[in-house]
Nucleic acid binder design. Sequence first.
DNA 1: CTGAAAGCGCTAACAG
DNA 2: CTGTTAGCGCTTTCAG
Lengths: 332, 332
Amino acid sequence: MSITIKDVAKETNLAMSTISKYMNGGNVRPKNREIIEEAVKRLGYHPNDIARGLRSTKTRTVGIVVSSFDTHMVQILNGIEKTLRANGYFPIICSHRDSLEKANQAIHFLMEKRVDGIIVEGILTSQKYVLPILDREIPLLGLETITDNLAMDYVVADGATGSYQAVEELVKRGHTKVGIISGPEGYYTARERLRGYLRVFEDYEIEVKKEYIIEGDYTYQSGYEGICRLWKLEQPPTAVFICNYNMCLGAVAAINQLGIHMPAELSLVTFDDMEFSRIVRPHLSSFRQPLEKMGIQAAQILVKRMNGDYGDFPKKVRLKGEFISRDSVRCV
Amino acid sequence: MSITIKDVAKETNLAMSTISKYMNGGNVRPKNREIIEEAVKRLGYHPNDIARGLRSTKTRTVGIVVSSFDTHMVQILNGIEKTLRANGYFPIICSHRDSLEKANQAIHFLMEKRVDGIIVEGILTSQKYVLPILDREIPLLGLETITDNLAMDYVVADGATGSYQAVEELVKRGHTKVGIISGPEGYYTARERLRGYLRVFEDYEIEVKKEYIIEGDYTYQSGYEGICRLWKLEQPPTAVFICNYNMCLGAVAAINQLGIHMPAELSLVTFDDMEFSRIVRPHLSSFRQPLEKMGIQAAQILVKRMNGDYGDFPKKVRLKGEFISRDSVRCV
DNA sequence: CTGAAAGCGCTAACAG
DNA sequence: CTGTTAGCGCTTTCAG
């Protein structure tokens, strides 16, 4: 098999424990230091992290459980990965595609791998499936969701304020008939974004029409269908707010398909600003979540916990984003 | 600490090895079976995978090293993850952002974690940094790249044929002045795609103009600049072939910015079909790589190797994609 | 500072 | 089928 610490010990006529100490940055007599260094290099010795983890119960590894890999997630992951690695940790990323079973598998896999901490994203954060993590007292952080009854840290974007800004933009420009294609009710983010929408109408004392509220499911398809349904109404809205990226893709496709002129006939603002927002014509006004920053923050907090610092536990971070005004909204 | 196999043994008055056997699916007397099951559940016992890996030298884990997380990679990863998990393996994903140092770190991390196999993607597949993997005889597969002198499996999309198809579409519709914004020369994929472009002109006996060949670097920025440079030419091309997704985003942005009418003034085809291709107007004609399939194939081959099956080693899979004709090309 | 010895949790051999 | 024993590669006491 491969070279072990024993081999190095034999080679140098030193004890295993001395080699071990050296490998972990401990103090060793300068002369031995050199001898060891030389032998390690010559033999091509690499400590076996598995064995090391077995003793020390620290693996310098953190588990990330996401719903799926997509354009949106990727930016968060970039932030997480960067921060984690800067702190000497490595991420193990699993996806569950909103399947409770896969999520459970992933969690158990990660626990068996003895990760030092876990970040979970999306709806499944809620409820029982994270309980075993808490039981084992593994630091746990929720991303893009909050469950009030669980003692853990959270990082979310301020969706209510974000959607408030987006919808207010519409209202300020004179729109009163404003539709929304929201996310599925079970999602924390969806509820937040809907809340922001509703609050605008409350604040501006405009009546909200039930038929303008379409519950989508965050997929391309539901964005597409949402627009179709809205457009078929006797009195279609003059503006619409789309609650996430994928649905926006579908919505724009439907708008093109139906030959609706944007923004002349229909104004649009969207949550989740993406590269294509400024490429499609008209350029889309949108609310940009600080995705990478969310990842960075999440990782930072988790690192803190893994270092045993529970000073501000449990922490709920709600990051602000920014509204970007482009050309998809007209004044009425 | 947590519950170990010893605890279960004590609880059931059976030997550790019996529990172990049961946990690994071995045959156990029905009565004991029940007893064990019950105790495992009651105690909440989960085998420690670290310890297990230490003994068995199998970790059921495979390392994935990618250049970065992006829209394109995500689809490949989906295929990999799905296939791996269906076979009982879990991926550990690392990115290196084209930094040789980070790539090395990642490789060592994965080897220390004793992964059963590794998939590497992108340019850095080449050369020395994968050598330690081969040395240790860990199954290794290269994705989106090929290095001829290394004995390992590869999965790539047939970029030459893909770009041939894309460019031929242009030529068939009467374009002779065709520009290309290619990838950086060091990339296997970039060379392949350029090769396809050149071969079309060879086959159709059309002269290629040097100034129509712009070497980009696969980024948004370079796509943008590429169009600008092409458009400034005394005799700008009437069509352009963009070699990847990010550059295409940039190219379309530039086309809009410059007020170039597409396809009237400039036709465009692109490598990498993405959702936005059929949303932007005009819809983009493009070559679609079978990204998810590439991931699936890669994982399948690796699984085979990890099972000790080296029957067809080394295997080089070159997957065909499809050209999708939309509205961004006009006939001259 | 160095070395000897014990043991992390598990599986692999081998008896029984 | 079950139990005993040894040991994976490393770290961690605890003497020296």
